[in-house]
């Protein structure tokens, strides 16, 4: 349960960039899972893939719902809160560095288009293989590979613009 919760929460957090929204969405995901569990069949894929798929659908819904709000309230406005919460000044060196990198990565992800962002998150942060991502996104594997590749290149350029040195 805890493992699945962390997986869902991280996907939501990386996609939304906000821990409160991520927690709310995680709850919503598990509620939906709980309601639709009887209809789950193993032919739909492994349970983690199905869980990720449900999460992704909810994230898309959430993104569409909040897009109107984001026209006036940019996601960048939420970033200072994020940085403030994870203020590296109060943490040990290694932790602070990791936290800073994570925050920079989050800011870069927030500037990616949703399609590229979800592909990169699923591949590089969630560790899904191409077939699983294809199952989650319901797109051909070629599209998945293309999105991941473009997402990585774009994210690298964004981070370069932000002045973040590659590791």
């Amino acid at each position: 349960m805890r493992r699945h919760t962390r997986r869902v929460f991280n996907l939501c957090y990386r996609f939304t960039g906000n821990s409160t929204s991520a927690e709310d969405l995680s709850q919503e995901v598990f509620l939906r899972i709980f309601r639709t569990l009887p209809s789950y069949q193993s032919s739909q894929g492994a349970f983690p893939t199905w869980l990720t798929s449900v999460t992704r659908n909810l994230l898309v819904d959430h993104y569409r719902r909040s897009r109107r709000d984001r026209m006036t309230d940019s996601i960048d406005d939420a970033m200072p809160q994020l940085e403030e919460r994870h203020s590296p000044a109060r943490m040990p060196d290694k932790l602070a560095q990791a936290s800073e990198l994570s925050a920079q990565l989050q800011r870069g992800l927030a500037r990616l288009s949703p399609e590229l962002r979800e592909a990169v998150i699923l591949r590089d942060l969630q560790g899904l293989d191409y077939a699983e991502i294809r199952g989650v996104l319901q797109v051909p594997e070629g599209t998945v590979k293309s999105r991941i590749n473009r997402g990585r290149i774009e994210l690298a350029r964004i981070l370069e613009e932000m002045g973040v040195r590659p590791a």
């Binding site: 821990s19 990198l101 994570s102 590089d124 942060l125 990585r152 994210l155 690298a156 981070l159």
Partner: peptide
């Protein structure tokens, strides 16, 4: 840049809920 980014993302610890 991309190699470094991919390596970094794959070694990023999951955020604790």
């Amino acid at each position: 840049q991309v190699s470094g980014l991919v390596s970094r993302m794959q070694h990023t610890a999951p955020v604790k809920e």
